[in-house]
Measured scan of single mutants.
Amino acid sequence: QTVHVKGVQYHFPNPEEAVKFALKVAKDLGGRVEFHGDEIHVE
């Protein structure tokens, strides 16, 4: 599972961890989380 944050990719073997990370980052940055297939983008 890959999380993209402002052009940087973070790889997580566990999808659940990836989602938790993405939600935390989005909250910290005041952004939103978008799901694109296997990828999660924080915009």
Rank of each mutant, 00 (worst) to 15 (best):
G7A: 04
V5Y: 09
H36N: 08
G30H: 09
A26M: 04
R32Q: 08
G30Q: 08
V42K: 01
F12N: 00
V25T: 09
Q9C: 15
K20A: 12
E43M: 15
K20S: 08
Q1C: 15
G30K: 08
V3P: 00
H4A: 05
L29D: 03
K6C: 15
A18S: 02
E34L: 13
Q1G: 09
D38N: 14
K6G: 14
D38L: 11
E43P: 04
H4R: 10
P13N: 13
N14K: 05
L29Q: 07
H4N: 10
K20T: 07
R32N: 07
K6E: 12
K20D: 11
E17L: 10
E17H: 05
A18P: 00
K24P: 00
Q9I: 15
K27N: 11
F12M: 02
A26C: 09
I40G: 01
D28S: 12
A18E: 02
D28Q: 14
V33D: 00
F35E: 03
E39V: 11
G7W: 04
E39T: 10
H11W: 15
K27S: 10
V5D: 01
G31A: 11
G30F: 06
E43S: 11
G7I: 03
K6W: 12
K6A: 13
E39L: 07
V19R: 11
G37L: 07
G37F: 07
K6V: 06
Q9W: 11
Y10H: 06
P13L: 12
P13Y: 10
H36I: 13
I40F: 03
H41R: 10
E39I: 11
G31S: 05
E39C: 13
K6M: 14
H11V: 09
H4T: 12
H41Q: 04
K20V: 07
E43R: 13
T2P: 02
G31E: 03
E43V: 15
P15Q: 13
G31L: 13
A22V: 02
F12L: 03
K20W: 08
P13R: 11
G31T: 05
K6R: 12
R32A: 06
A18K: 01
E34V: 15
N14L: 06
K20L: 10
L29A: 05
G30Y: 05
